[in-house]
């Protein structure tokens, strides 16, 4: 514990004030407003709020469209997380062998992280384009087979792949860092005992990756609930027929296109609860760092 402090507490107040003001205005105030709006019915162009209790929640939760949005969001979160984590883990395990070309492979796995979500969405929109993209050959052989602009399942697959693609780099960075923090003495001891490369991966490295694994799992799921807006917006726009209308996208379209502020605020509160629960799980049950030494 620190013993030496500065005495002038007014300077302390001065230096913490800017951040506190910003988080009050842009975080706590809007969050409390969202809760307030979710409990009232607001007229978009003024006219005051009327208190309706949990009526908004009842409306939202009895709407089959909202439940389909929840279903799609969960499928998206689980599938893209599984895909991204599986791929990143395999790549990190093999990259960690540090054979020739290790540095090149590492850069090759990291750079996609730099790309903005809407850019990923737009690029994949072309890649998956039924007339001109990568899969257009399917349609030349069997017309009308591949068309994510009409087929909801195909559109969802496309969004999942784009979402997973964007997460791979992030996961790779964390898996590789965790693998490199495993003491060499452990792997060397295993090698002395006659364990080959694959055996060491399975029995030494994978179990030691467990904390990182759970950390990334929670981060990925949280991320796919919130950060997916950009991908959906340029890739499918929520369509076709709401097949890719993720929860975060629905908040945006209901609030800013439908001007249903109370409905959007109610959905925000539900999503907020979800994010808080996930963050709580992360801090309560998941170790924050990997310490082996």
């Amino acid at each position: 514990m620190r013993r030496a402090y500065f005495k002038n507490n007014w300077i302390a107040a001065l230096v913490v004030a800017p951040q506190l003001i910003i988080i009050f205005v842009f975080f706590y105030w809007p969050a409390s407003q969202a809760i307030y709006w979710s409990l009232t019915l607001e007229q978009p162009w003024g006219g005051g709020n009327t208190w309706v209790g949990l009526e908004n929640f009842r409306t939202v939760l009895s709407d089959p469209v909202y439940w389909s949005s929840i279903r799609v969001s969960i499928i998206f979160a689980l599938a893209s997380t599984a895909l991204a984590m599986g791929m990143a883990m395999i790549l990190a395990l093999f990259a960690d062998r540090q054979l020739t070309g290790y540095r090149l492979y590492r850069v090759g796995m990291i750079w996609p992280y730099a790309i903005a979500a809407p850019a990923v969405g737009l690029a994949f929109r072309f890649v998956f384009n039924p007339n001109a993209g990568l899969f257009s050959f399917i349609n030349t052989i069997a017309p009308e087979t591949w068309n994510p602009t009409l087929n909801g399942t195909q559109a969802l697959i496309m969004v999942i792949i784009a979402g997973a693609w964007k997460l791979v780099s992030y996961n790779f960075i964390f898996f590789l860092a965790a693998l490199q923090s495993i003491p060499r003495s452990l792997t060397e001891a295993a090698a002395m005992d006659g364990a080959g490369v694959l055996r060491r991966m399975r029995d030494v490295q994978l179990p030691l990756l467990a904390p990182t694994f759970f950390f990334i799992l929670v981060i990925n799921i949280t991320d796919s609930f919130t950060d997916s807006f950009g991908i959906v917006d340029t890739l499918t726009g929520g369509g076709p027929a709401r097949a890719t209308d993720l929860m975060v996208y629905k908040i945006y379209s209901d609030g800013f296109r439908g001007f249903d502020y109370s409905g959007a605020a109610t959905q925000s509160v539900i999503l907020m609860g979800l994010v808080i629960a996930l963050t709580f799980i992360q801090f309560r049950y998941v170790e924050r760092r990997v310490h082996y030494t």
Partner: peptide
């Protein structure tokens, strides 16, 4: 715990 996406409207 309050990313922009969940408090976007207010």
């Amino acid at each position: 715990m309050l990313p922009l996406e969940v408090r976007i409207v207010p």
